[in-house]
Design a protein around this nucleic acid. Structure first.
Lengths: 409, 409
DNA sequence: ACAAGTTTGCAAGAGAGGAACACAAACGTT
DNA sequence: AACGTTTGTGTTCCTCTCTTGCAAACTTGT
């Protein structure tokens, strides 16, 4: 009767699950909360909160601390806090020039992290999988807690369902079954979720950065390519297969420069790192240092550098205008290269935005630079890996996370 | 304690509400279902379904019919069907050249409808409100049932929260408080929801048309302007203020033709009705008949007409490629003018789409013409007006909809 | 020390769906 | 025409979960 599909009917058990979820999610996302805070957050009664919190304490998910006097009248309310060592996840990022991994505990605490710098273009799937295995095993040895999930952010177009990396031009990958390969290589019997790096950068900003509490956010992250992600109505924009958010390849100038995707005049050809470096007369492989050099030169009054930034800023505004009209976000976050040039190009960008976005959506949007720096995708990937636990904490009551069960050990 | 905000905590009452909602929504969207269908749909037990259906029958929302033999073994299951006269809504559309209203009953049956043709540009807010009042009162007199909600689709940029029409260039409106004015003029003590016409056309297609069961849909509807809407992950893309979906004003050719929005090279300037007519050498006010003339001429081999369609088709593909990359929809529905020219321009459109959309999202998308014709926005508006009832049927158990309570009467 | 205000803890109560059983109706076979 | 099989209803009792109401605990301010 109850086949694989989602049953929309609800039962008392569903209620309990949802309420446990609300508490754990609240503690994970907002930090420690008193019981009365939880009453206010959920709208449940004190008795219900008491029972639920006790259940979570018994399961080890939550630690309750005696109380603390806040100078307000009334009996002080005990503080509940997520137990970071009761459930940890592994957040991994595979970027163009580095690979990083972090172990994050419930509540969002980073317990350990490590990064390998790599030169661009030298990242074969085999090598990456080997690097990640090594990073991961050393981190897990250090922390000695078995993770409940693994999230991976990768700079490419990813099918969410099975973690197939359809295309990652900057890594030179095509159709790499990264999900399968990592599951096998790590040998940990937990789910591995693969996602796009920009989507994960956005998730990190939404949980821990500039977009906390904002339900309609657009994220633009320009590294070698221009990636992006969006949160619409509080939920990540994924699309039917999880390929959504590839804003770098929207045509903004169809008669323009050929793009490596096969089209011409994609946004990426006008606002990508390559465009900025080329206009500034720097070699295309100058990378992040090249961008810094352009910013320095422009500040020093070098005309080509200033013109390059002007061009990129202008086209940034043009593309954002379209996206603002389509998505009506409350916030636009510029990450990576675009975050770094934001302060400089802001005036020209806003000229185009003012001119080309419809007045109504224009007035409801703010554009800011990302607040999290390097490592944001890994943190977002960790949040992704936490999602099953946050959605149904009771499903994890049984698993004793404290016994490390490494693949090699 | 339980202030205005949404409490995320659940209680047994929530479960009951959700289950009633699932049943009513199922009957409304899918048509009559047997009790055992409802068991399969919800995953609840027979006992629970029985109790819930009986409750709905007692409230008059649902009519249960004896059974009917279907030639399958087993005891026949009684058929539950939504009672169309127990709850009706008013769906209204304000388009460039006509105003229409329909009374739709629970289950999606149109009980009465009426349309006023108007010449373009002659639609002042006062006149429109008066026309709607008249249309509505005559329909309500005919049906003699008081509506539980009113939905209005209007060809303009609308703020959902209060029904402010921020801008409707084709009607010549700016900042018209349509929600307030209609609430007052109609004098019915029920909520009036205003929305964009394309969003409502899409909602109609999603509930009753080509997009039934599809959770990621993009809708493009070109009339005088080019409007659009999207459903992402099963939910309408609204954005922070409900302005989302204004795809007509994404810049696709920033050095191109000035757009009436103040920008240049908006998609609308390349694929709007105005562009087609101008390229075909017809006057800009030739309207829908002009488009038909262009299609006829092209079929007859007139070069300018063919070239005009080629241009529009090509740019249609270019813009769709960007949108497909951004949203990764499963289905693109072309409504209004774009639905009519779809069959003709399909080849060139697909050339651009194949070339400019990334392979992964391109392969997961189908482009089709709208399946609902004239009147789709009004049907969508009716669905919008039903939403509160579908979300919480029990809240409407008290109200006796059968006593007509007209404004004038 | 006392009053006021807030929160905890506990026990009883109410709402809602689940499980199991008996029974009913239709189909196909013998 | 009688049989068993299948599918589904109706009913009763049970379990789960949150709410209600009351007394006690704790802090602040007078």
């Amino acid at each position: 009767m109850r086949q694989g599909r989602v049953d929309i009917g609800q039962r008392s058990e569903t209620v309990h699950r949802a309420n446990l979820s609300a508490i754990v999610r609240g503690l994970h996302e907002r930090g420690p909360l008193s019981r009365s805070d939880l009453v206010a957050l959920t709208g449940l009664t004190r008795s219900a909160i008491r029972a639920l919190v006790c259940e979570l304490v018994d399961a080890g998910m939550v630690i309750e601390e005696p109380a603390l006097r806040r100078g307000t009248p009334g009996r002080p309310s005990p503080i509940a806090r997520a137990n970071p060592r009761r459930a940890v996840v592994l957040g991994i990022e595979i970027m163009v020039d580095s690979i990083a991994a972090a172990i994050v505990g419930l509540g969002g605490v980073t317990l350990a992290e490590s990064r390998l710098e790599r030169t661009r273009g030298s990242l074969s799937p085999d090598r990456v999988v080997a690097d990640i295995t090594e990073l991961t095993e050393s981190l897990l040895r250090r922390v000695a807690v078995a993770p409940i999930g693994i999230g991976v952010a990768v700079a490419g177009v990813v099918r969410r369902s099975d973690g197939l990396v359809w295309m990652a031009p900057n890594l030179g990958w095509a159709e790499v079954a990264l999900g399968e390969r990592l599951t096998e290589a790590l040998g940990l019997a937990v789910p591995v979720s693969i996602a796009n790096d920009a989507d994960m950068g956005l998730l990190a900003e939404h949980r821990r950065g500039a977009a906390v509490g904002v339900d309609d956010v657009l994220y633009v992250s320009g590294e070698v390519g221009v990636g992006g992600g969006a949160i619409i109505g509080g939920r990540p924009l994924m699309g039917v297969a999880g390929y959504g958010g590839e804003i770098g390849h929207m045509p903004v100038n169809p008669g323009g420069i050929p793009c490596r995707c096969g089209s011409t005049g994609c946004w990426e050809t006008e606002v990508g790192e390559g465009a900025l470096l080329a206009l500034a007369g720097l070699p295309p492989d100058a990378g992040r240092e090249g961008v810094e050099a352009v910013l320095r030169e422009a500040a020093a009054g070098v005309p080509t550098a200033a013109a390059a930034l002007d061009h990129v800023g202008r086209w940034l505004g043009i593309g954002l205008a379209g996206l603002v009209n389509i998505l009506n976000p409350q916030l636009v976050i510029l990450g990576a290269m675009h975050g770094r040039i934001h302060a400089t190009v802001r005036p020209v960008m806003e000229v185009e935005l003012d001119r080309r976005a419809l007045r109504a959506p224009r007035e409801s949007v703010h554009v800011v630079a990302a607040s999290l720096g390097v490592g944001a995708p890994a943190r977002g990937a960790a949040e992704l890996a936490f999602e099953p636990l946050l959605a149904d904490p009771a499903a994890f009551f049984g698993s004793a996370a404290l016994a490390p069960q490494l693949a090699s050990a």
